[in-house]
Simulated assay, not measured.
Amino acid sequence: MAQLQKSIDKRNALIKATIELVNNNGFHATPMSKIAKMANVSPATIYLYFENKQDLVNKTYIDVKAAYTDYAFATYTENMSVTEGFEMIWKRIADFKLKECENAMFLAQCDNTPMIDEHSRQEGIKHLQPLLDLWARGKKEGIIKPISDYLLYAYAINPLSFLMMSEKRGAFKLDSTHLEKAYQAAWSSIKLCE
């Protein structure tokens, strides 16, 4: 049991080091040797858990995406109205992006660069299924605009990454009033006009 925990701890240390180094240096300027050093393991140890750097980054992405969506959907239930469900999910996503800034920054980098392979990207999208199902229900009920889920995500969710990065740089402070206005703007961008 202790050996299993030690193995889990090493893998987690590698994931954490990957996130920090990719966030600070970018994908290409993050060699495996730096990741190993930061995780306090030998470079050969990485290959016990991951095939190569691409595999390490892909699996890190999937792990972080799973944590992100677990958090986003933790208080959501399918019996909520579309309006109530979207507000709950959006505010949980905002909370994650502000509280788990390093993980959110890593996801933003992955979503905006070709460093994640298509298989891993599709695996990440599966984790968003409750939101996609909510949008499908909203379209069917005539509440959500009948447009691509990519457009819905781009207008309603992606602006949170911009706000998070602005806050991290110290350019903007997201207080509860700003968050409420951001939510209202997100909702207005995807709901059908009454």
Rank of each mutant, 00 (worst) to 15 (best):
Gln3Met: 03
Gln3Leu: 04
Gln3Phe: 00
Gln5Tyr: 03
Asn12Glu: 15
Asn12Lys: 11
Ala13Thr: 04
Ile15Asp: 07
Ile15Asn: 06
Lys16Glu: 10
Lys16Gln: 14
Ile19Ala: 01
Ile19Lys: 07
Glu20Ile: 06
Leu21Val: 00
Val22Ala: 01
Asn23Tyr: 02
Gly26Asn: 00
Gly26His: 01
Ala29Glu: 08
Thr30Gly: 02
Pro31Cys: 07
Ile35Pro: 11
Ala36Lys: 06
Lys37Ile: 12
Met38Ile: 12
Ala39Cys: 14
Asn40Cys: 13
Val41Leu: 11
Ser42Glu: 10
Pro43Asn: 09
Ile46Val: 07
Tyr49Asn: 04
Glu51Tyr: 15
Asn52Arg: 03
Asn52Thr: 04
Asn52Lys: 05
Lys53Phe: 02
Gln54Met: 03
Asp55Phe: 03
Leu56Trp: 02
Val57Arg: 01
Asn58Ala: 03
Lys59Asn: 06
Thr60Tyr: 08
Asp63Ala: 14
Val64Ile: 07
Ala67Trp: 08
Ala67Met: 13
Ala67His: 06
Tyr68Asp: 05
Asp70Thr: 10
Ala72Ile: 04
Phe73Arg: 00
Thr75Tyr: 13
Met80Gly: 05
Gly85Ala: 04
Gly85Val: 07
Phe86Ile: 02
Glu87Pro: 11
Ile89Trp: 09
Lys91Met: 11
Lys91Ala: 13
Lys91Pro: 06
Ala94Phe: 15
Ala94Asp: 06
Phe96Asp: 11
Lys97Tyr: 11
Lys97Ser: 12
Leu98Tyr: 09
Lys99Ala: 15
Glu102Lys: 10
Glu102Leu: 06
Asn103Pro: 15
Met105Phe: 12
Phe106Asp: 01
Leu107Ala: 04
Ala108Lys: 09
Ala108Phe: 11
Gln109His: 12
Cys110Gly: 08
Asn112Trp: 12
Asn112Ile: 05
Thr113Val: 04
Met115His: 01
Met115Tyr: 01
Met115Glu: 00
Ile116Trp: 06
Asp117Val: 04
Arg121Asn: 10
Glu123Tyr: 14
Gly124Pro: 03
Ile125Asn: 14
Lys126Cys: 13
His127Phe: 13
His127Glu: 09
Gln129Cys: 13
Gln129Ile: 10
Leu131Cys: 08
Leu132Trp: 15
Asp133Phe: 15
Ala136Thr: 14
Lys139Arg: 15
Lys140Asn: 15
Lys140Tyr: 12
Ile143Leu: 07
Lys145Gly: 06
Lys145Gln: 05
Lys145Cys: 03
Pro146Ser: 14
Ser148Asn: 03
Ser148His: 02
Asp149Gln: 07
Tyr150Thr: 10
Leu151Tyr: 14
Ala154Lys: 00
Tyr155His: 15
Tyr155Pro: 09
Ala156Asn: 01
Ile157His: 01
Pro159Ser: 00
Leu160Tyr: 10
Phe162Leu: 01
Leu163Ser: 05
Arg169Gln: 11
Gly170Met: 05
Leu174Phe: 00
Leu174Ile: 00
Ser176Glu: 13
Thr177Val: 13
Thr177Asn: 14
His178Ser: 12
Leu179Pro: 06
Glu180Thr: 14
Tyr183His: 02
Ala185Val: 09
Cys193Gly: 10
